[in-house]
Design a protein around this nucleic acid. Structure first.
Lengths: 331, 331
DNA sequence: CTGAAAGCGCTTACAG
DNA sequence: CTGAAAGCGCTTACAG
């Protein structure tokens, strides 16, 4: 590998000078010298060693991104948002799939420390997050931003208002005249799921309907659990369910598939509303009505905030991005 | 940050000794000393600086992964495969979305050089790849593995046999009695698309059918282009098309949606076969018959091969993974 | 405007 | 078994 020394020798200057033109410092270098150095850099194909530089500057221009599972269609948009923004801001991102495993999360967090990432963006944690937060974020000084809901008061968070958005989605169903609305939930530990359930409950109560226990079907945010929820649905004591509020799109799509196989028409026999607005939701038939979460923007914004922190700027503890009810063909 | 010096002082040994217990070198350290050092490391919360280490060892245990767009459902599986394998092998992965842009690819490749990644996995390049390959891979010594089809004879490649797989898919349609089969292609530059088209042509010819120009509809691997292909389909001179071979699942799903809106039943009125077997393909109605490409394994295998190269092992130039025709409800 | 030298935090011959 | 010292490739006061 060609080093700064080689360049210096080739341009007949000191490495100090080479470093100066490299860093475009305000310390001036004569135009001729600069030209010569630039030429040498080009001719030799010199790329400054980021490790050597980082060792000195004590920063890596690298951030760590912890997501739970890239296979879940919610995450690619997050990743893309983070990455686009990172690239614009001069950062590079290390991707970590934690698979909701505390072990794997810890392992990655340690790698991040050793690699001296400048910051960490953490998403989709839930129970893992709580556990890790106290052990890690409390005792470390790596800048961190959480996408979702942070349980730690001190960590900046980028989120949407899940309670309110769920409320609006259910309110819409209620206004259409639905009185018996089932909800399919996310995993128990998920703070997101808890909030969405809360919004569902509030909306029903607000409209004078007492939510029944059997209307709440446990899911886990995956297609399969939405599909299976429908099997159990038939068992819901005697009453005819007229609408389903699935707490994410994958489950809504799973439910629609099961409904179709049972010969039930959506939305004629039963209305379905999802949550997230993943790309897939406009590809299915009927197209899925859902709550649009600005997923890409969540990613972008969190990276922006992280870079603000790293630049020493003040940032707000909580940034809430707006959601929007997107009505299509399933309600 | 606590450094090796702090640990040495705390354990009352030299940094040499600390380094030795850190690296579990064969150079022996007395059990008591080792114990003391380990304790100090734990007490002080020491994490060795990977930059300092890397500077010396001239390796980063980091690899760069270039994909085209994480939003495309094909890529998350690649990423997951690469990442799982990387994590097992002790590597960390930097993710780069190139968006099929040559500029962005070049930019990332330069970042990879500066960060001194140990290796690069390159996927989905097509035309970008050609251009970049000669400029970059020829003149650099970073170990590289290409997923797909490499235009460079020297770069190890992990791929599937697209010609043969497409052949089999079309052969299946032909055996079902279809005589007028349309194909929706990928982008013109895509070597993958070129191979799949080749397989389509060969299969038809083999069965005594001369492929007509108007049976080949240009697509670009995206949902929308599959959807739009169906509009143009009605214009295909007089004849009734009975089957569609979409060169990837997203387009197949787009086509099915358009077909449904036109009131055409799949597979009764028209059969559809896709390619890739992305998760989504089993979620749509009817479920999509398709060619299963071991996407996750492509990722895993390429990382394995990369690490073999880095370990100085011989690797085969081309690794071909098997595909499988997966018949479901659309044919 | 230019350069010699110290230092970032490690690893590894070399010496004992 | 243990340690002093050189060196990895940069940046940045400091001096001129």
């Amino acid at each position: 590998m060609v080093t700064i020394k080689d360049v210096a020798k080739h341009a007949k200057v000191s490495i100090t000078t080479v470093s100066r033109v490299l860093n475009k410092t305000e310390h001036s270098v004569s135009p001729e010298t600069k030209e010569r150095v630039l030429n040498s850099i080009r001719e030799l194909g010199f790329y400054p060693n980021a490790m050597a530089r980082g060792l000195h500057l004590n920063r890596t221009k690298t951030i760590g991104l912890i997501i739970q599972d890239i296979s879940n269609p919610y995450y690619p948009s997050i990743v893309r948002g983070v990455e686009d923004s990172a690239q614009e801001l001069g950062y590079t991102v290390i991707l970590a799939n934690a698979y909701r495993s505390r072990d794997r999360t810890t392992k990655y967090l340690n790698v991040f420390r050793e690699k001296r990432v400048d910051g960490i963006i953490f998403t989709g944690g839930g129970v893992v997050k709580d556990a890790v937060e106290e052990n890690f974020f409390e005792h470390t000084h790596i800048a961190t931003v959480v996408i979702g809901k942070s349980c730690n008061v001190k960590i900046p968070t980028v989120q949407v208002n899940n309670v309110q958005a769920a409320w609006e989605a259910c309110e819409h169903l209620l206004k259409l005249g639905h009185k018996r609305i089932v909800t399919i939930t996310g995993p128990e530990e998920s703070t997101t799921a808890i909030d969405r359930l809360e919004g569902y409950n509030q909306a029903l109560i607000h409209h004078g309907i007492t939510p029944k226990d059997e209307w709440v079907i446990q899911g886990n945010f995956e297609f399969e659990s939405g599909y299976k929820a429908i099997e159990r649905l038939s068992e819901v004591g005697g009453e005819k369910i007229t609408a389903i509020f699935a707490q994410n799109d994958m489950m809504a799509i799973g439910a629609m598939k099961a409904l179709e196989e049972k010969g039930l028409k959506v939305p004629e026999d039963i209305a379905v509303i999802g949550f997230d607005n993943i790309p897939l939701s406009s590809f299915v038939t009927p197209t899925l009505s859902t709550v649009t979460v600005p997923i890409y923007e969540l990613g972008r914004t969190s990276m922006k905030i992280l870079s603000d922190i790293l630049a020493g700027h003040e940032v707000s503890r909580i940034t809430t991005l707006p959601t929007k009810l997107t009505l299509r063909g399933s309600d």
